[in-house]
Computed example of a mutant assay.
Amino acid sequence: MHTVPDLRAHGGADAFLRNCASRAVLDLLTNKWVCLVVGALRPGTMRFGELRRRLDGVTQKMLTQTLRDLERAGLVHRAVYPSVPPRVEYSLTPLGQNVAGLMDAIRVWSEEHIDDIRTAQEAYDTKAGEELQPV
């Protein structure tokens, strides 16, 4: 059996350990809306209304919270321009651009394999719905 060493003593992180701070990053990145916001911002700067229209189904509250979380984590830059009404634009920081490729790959994989996943789910549900047969 292979045991992975605890890398924290050497300055590393190990998300498999319950107290590792990297779990907070995983929590952030595994949020559906985070993945979609990062993907929407990958091509370039967008205003709040543009993001909301692009992300079908997101509420104003959820989009606001997601953008705040991403800004706090250093993945999104929020620029406010003095005008009436104030103009606010969002863009990915270099760190956000860095993770955007991973998020985009997950989205693309999801789109490409949705039929496989649905087929597997239907097969599972059918099998689970059958009565146990004596051997």
Rank of each mutant, 00 (worst) to 15 (best):
R42M: 05
Q97H: 14
Q97R: 10
E122K: 15
A9M: 00
L51Y: 01
K61P: 07
T66P: 00
D27I: 06
A24N: 07
H2W: 06
S22R: 04
R87M: 08
R118F: 11
Q60F: 05
V25N: 06
H77R: 15
V58S: 14
T59M: 09
T126E: 11
L92E: 01
V84M: 08
A100N: 02
E50Q: 12
E50M: 02
M46E: 02
T93K: 12
T66A: 14
H77D: 11
A24D: 06
L75F: 07
R47C: 06
L17W: 09
A15E: 02
A79W: 00
G39C: 11
A79M: 07
R54S: 12
R72L: 13
S91H: 02
P43H: 09
C20E: 06
Q65H: 09
E50A: 14
V37Q: 09
A105F: 03
T64M: 12
A40I: 11
D6E: 11
Q65W: 08
V4C: 11
T119Y: 11
I106C: 09
G129K: 13
T45A: 10
A128W: 15
G39H: 02
L7P: 07
Q97I: 00
R107E: 13
V84Y: 15
P85D: 03
E131M: 15
T59E: 15
A24P: 00
D115V: 15
E71V: 08
H113K: 14
D27M: 05
P94E: 02
V99S: 06
L51R: 04
V88K: 00
M103Q: 04
L67C: 13
